[in-house]
Nucleic acid binder design. Structure first.
Lengths: 244, 244
DNA sequence: GCTGTAAGACTTACAACGTAAGGGAGCCGA
DNA sequence: TCGGCTCCCTTACGTTGTAAGTCTTACAGC
């Protein structure tokens, strides 16, 4: 049923000939294909067998290049962060960064990361599920620390700020509900009994902006609102630190 | 090997006798046991078979009370939010809440939720993985909205704020790395080549507070730092709104 | 060209997962 | 007493990651 088995079953001269044009794998090729597969079919579809299929190979062959599936997951995230690196023009600290402009610089860096992650929406899930960031992700964070440092903040403040910004450092936030559709009036009425305040809010938002079904959730706008809130607060603490 | 199969193999009069004292399941009992199982052995250990084992029952029996595993996951989260409700003394809005004290009230509410979630660290994972909040979680959010509303904020500002606070509303943040141990000096040196700013920060933190191995991460302190940053920023926007 | 060797692809097989399908025990109303 | 309903058990299937072992192919040295 898969394209590969079809090809197998189909016009193929001899077993031997098929073997002759055997595909050569490589760690990089596997990861690149995995990224495309996840982009196309989602994270759940990224199984060893499906990946092998896309590579024109049997599942177990992959294990000669990556030790296990977790390594693949870590690997694709690293690929994504390589993309982040080129998106933001390198992980270095912009040379003119100082106390006056660290915040916009950081803002730009984070929004750049976000742009890439929006192209690979499955990546945050992997990052959440797996612990330690790889080298590329690490260098991304290092750049963030560098920008704050160039802004004249103490490591202590930077450290707290990193935690505060949390996953926003990476350019994403937990999406509350992806399920898409706006609450139908019937649902809204039902909700009113359970959660009147929430229902009132939803009703007003729906009234003010009927088009924005549930695009009212997790907009770019929302992301930037939260980010700016944090950056403002951090800037105020930086200034306080500088006064001492 | 499991306690149950041992019991089976052991002193048991007759098959019929065993059947007579057949365990009676209930939706509630299943969920309660699932919570205990997850608390004890972690989320990965919460499989249908393990759960059935703890219940003294076969896996498929569970399906007479819950339609599938997702229902169980949703169910245990609801159990957790019932615990939140009692922890915070109900999801209602404190009667004296106004523009002057909404922020402390909200802070208290969120930290209460956090206290409960720290007792069930697996719960956030489920909440992330699955979409829509259940009724209890919904009522929790409704309480949060209610508090802000009592503070005199517009629904628009409340709505943006909800997104900004993100998962903090629920009382948790994504933990960056749970893997525990402090970076060994060797690791730190290796890191210095890759991420010098980060390495410098870690070195200083380690120096200032050698005990706090990596408890320096995701402390209560960190959580409150970020929360207060957001609450401050929101309060400033509320005051601005009130001036218009 | 021939052959030995190592790299790497293939085959087979397993344990664990969620769960569909159907069997049968026990209880309850008639 | 009996029919039927509830609900637990048994068996089995498809999918997952991956361990173990076989076989092919490319290439080095002769």
């Amino acid at each position: 049923m898969s394209s590969r088995s079809a090809e197998r079953a189909g016009a193929q001269p001899t077993r031997r000939a098929a073997r002759t044009e055997r595909t050569r794998l490589s760690r990089d090729g596997v990861l690149q294909t995995a990224v495309r597969l996840a982009d196309r079919d989602g994270l759940d579809a990224l199984t060893m067998r499906a990946l092998a299929d896309d590579l024109g190979v049997e599942a177990m062959s992959i294990y000669h290049h990556l030790p296990n599936k977790n390594a693949i997951l870590d690997g694709v995230v690293e690929v994504v962060f390589a993309e982040v690196e080129s998106e933001v023009g390198g992980f270095g600290v912009p040379p003119t960064t100082d106390a006056a402009n660290w915040a916009p610089a950081l803002r730009e860096r984070i929004l750049g990361a976000r742009r890439v992650l929006l192209r690979h929406p499955w990546a945050p899930w992997i990052m959440n599920a797996r612990g330690a960031p790889g080298p590329n992700a690490m260098r991304h964070i290092d750049g963030v620390v560098g920008i704050m440092r160039a802004g004249g903040m103490s490591f202590d403040l930077i450290h707290h700020s990193l935690h505060a910004i949390g996953s926003r450092v990476y350019g994403y936030v937990q999406e509350l509900s992806d399920d898409g559709d706006a609450p139908a009036p019937a649902q809204l009425e039902q909700l009113a009994g359970l959660a009147p305040n929430l229902a009132a809010m939803l009703a007003e938002v729906a009234h003010d902006d009927p088009d924005s079904t549930l695009g009212w959730c997790d907009d770019q706008t929302e992301f930037e609102f939260g980010l700016d809130l944090l950056l403002e607060g951090i800037e105020r603490r930086r200034a306080a630190e500088a006064r001492d």
